[in-house]
């Protein structure tokens, strides 16, 4: 058999996925912790405060990586959803629906931190700033996918519907992003301009560290969720029964 197809076929099998993802997860958590501790140390202690915004600029190390993750996860959901729909790989369906809450959480964090950052910067918690507005629309897109998934009775049908919705959403996402950006300049709104080209290396390094850390967090969280979903779905299947009897011995 074609090695690539064989690889997908094997990883597509729930017992195989369960076994190897279980081995990977502790490493992902470890890397995440190490990067986060170092990144936060650099960001909160070592890096200088902004000459305009003062200490409040440090919220960037959480806000910006979360905003990046919120977009990346939605894009990944669309790619995984496409694979799930075309090749009918169940693991991919599970990964799509396990990604949605993580992505929604990152979007919510980006919104909350952005709003907290806005308080000292603009003097108010909410301004219809381009980035915050598109994050808000993205949050609604996530809610749509999650609500659609929860509305169906049959889990696989639900996951396929959610996959299709994430593809449709992802095609629209760049259009939404650019139109909101344009809408914002049109109405002369304020922008946070935090990650311009002039960012100082002492600020860039912790930012990149946190951006990498959040990816490991997503990986670990996603795999754990997917494993749990598989166990729940297959609780009657032999491999789960075998696993349970092994655990109890």
């Amino acid at each position: 058999m074609n090695p690539i197809f064989l690889f997908f076929h094997k990883t597509g099998s729930p017992p195989w996925f369960y076994k190897y993802s279980g081995k990977l997860i502790p490493w992902l958590w470890a890397v995440f912790l190490a990067l986060t501790v170092y990144g936060l140390y650099l960001g909160l202690v070592v890096a200088p405060a902004d000459y305009q915004q003062g200490e409040s600029v440090r919220i960037m190390y959480l806000h910006v990586p979360s905003a990046w993750m919120s977009m990346m996860i939605y894009g990944l959901m669309a790619i995984m959803g496409f694979i799930a729909l075309v090749w009918r790989i169940r693991i991919m369906e599970v990964l799509v629906i396990s990604s949605a809450p993580v992505g929604a959480a990152f979007t919510a964090i980006a919104l909350i931190t952005g709003s907290l950052w806005g308080r000292p910067t603009w003097g108010t918690y909410w301004v219809w700033d381009a980035r915050l507005t598109s994050e808000l629309v993205l949050l609604f897109l996530y809610f749509g996918v999650i609500a659609l998934y929860n509305s169906f009775d049959e889990p696989r049908k639900a996951a396929r519907a959610a996959s299709l919705m994430s593809i449709v959403g992802a095609i629209n996402l760049p259009i939404i992003y650019f139109s909101v950006e344009w809408w914002n300049t049109l109405h002369q709104g304020s922008s946070m301009g935090s990650d311009g080209p002039g960012i100082h290396p002492s600020m860039l390094l912790p930012l990149l560290l946190m951006a990498t850390a959040t990816k490991f967090f997503y990986g670990a969280n996603l795999l754990s969720r997917a494993r749990l979903t598989l166990l729940k779905q297959d609780h009657r299947k032999r491999w789960v029964q075998d696993l349970l009897s092994k655990e109890s011995h």
Binding site: E154, P155, R156, Q233, D234, R236, K237
Partner: peptide, 14 residues
């Protein structure tokens, strides 16, 4: 005209 082999369908993973 039609040949069916080992056909089954799963719903709710059963």
């Amino acid at each position: 005209m039609l040949a069916v082999t080992g056909l089954s369908f799963e719903r709710y993973f059963e």
